[in-house]
């Protein structure tokens, strides 16, 4: 804490204006912007700016964060209109500012920058995102060896950290929250394409509000901080599902 104070005092008198969306249930009828002046430190991410506000300027500000290294996926917010991980987005990217920070689009706002992700969690579990095995009870020490090719087939989709930036970037989801959405479908594909998986997710994916709701805007892929490419996962499953519908005997 004293480190920060020292650094801020010594570093500069330069500051950047941060406009933060505030929503206090029972107090605000709708979100309003509140402005703060934050020291513009070269190595500060937007999240550091928010923590500075919370620690020094306004303890009532609410937001989610945890790892500060782009792994936990909890600090996703809309920064100047774009969904970003605030721990991986530097204040200096925005020059003289101001930087406008809003909660992720497409989700109900609980308070300030905190959104309700229950809808996503329900969608995620609906695609059965785990390895499904049938007809065996192997010992806990059993190994399932995979070749590098088998690993490569799904590895990209396994990088998802459930940060929800792709949902916020997707106009289809923002306009119609019934859409199953990019990350859930990409994670379904992560298991579909895994050589160890014996499950079938056709029933949850071959639906109007699932892969067929996607119109291939492609912004989920641009927003993804982990290069998962959900847009590709969805288009690939469209082809799979279409071929399975036309050729009933083909399983994958």
């Amino acid at each position: 804490m004293t480190d920060t104070t020292e650094a801020v005092r010594r570093a500069s008198t330069r500051t950047i204006r941060v406009e933060v969306s505030r929503y206090r249930p029972g107090e605000d009828a709708e979100p309003v912007f509140q402005e703060y002046e934050v020291p513009l430190m070269a190595d500060w991410a937007v999240l550091d700016g928010l923590n500075y506000i919370k620690d020094r300027l306004d303890g009532s500000l609410s937001f989610r964060w945890s790892c500060r290294m782009g792994v936990c996926g909890s600090c996703g917010m809309n920064v100047n209109g774009e969904p970003r991980l605030t721990c991986g987005t530097f204040l200096s990217e925005y020059g003289e500012g101001p930087v406008r920070i809003e909660p992720l689009k497409g989700f109900p706002v609980i308070r300030d920058l905190v959104v309700d992700i229950d809808d996503f969690l329900a969608k995620l579990s609906s695609v059965r995102p785990w390895l499904i095995r049938e007809g065996e009870e192997p010992p806990l020490t059993a190994e399932y060896a995979q070749t590098p090719e088998q690993l490569e087939a799904y590895k990209q989709y396994s990088m998802c950290i459930n940060c929800l930036l792709c949902y916020s970037a997707c106009p289809v989801y923002v306009l119609d929250p019934d859409f199953l959405g990019p990350a859930a479908i990409a994670l379904a594909q992560r298991y579909n394409l895994d050589s160890r998986d014996m499950g079938d997710r056709f029933d949850v994916l071959n639906l109007e509000d699932s892969v067929w709701g996607c119109t291939f805007v492609g912004e989920c892929t641009s927003a993804c901080p982990k290069h998962v490419d959900p847009a590709e996962a969805i288009q690939r499953y469209k082809l799979t599902a279409a071929l399975r519908s036309v050729l009933p005997w083909s399983r994958r």
């Binding site: 056709f202 071959n206 109007e208 469209k238 279409a242 399975r244």
Partner: peptide
Amino acid sequence: MRRTPEPYLWLLFSG
């Protein structure tokens, strides 16, 4: 399982 015409419509769209 619910039947949907979407796969056929999508194939026509893609073709």
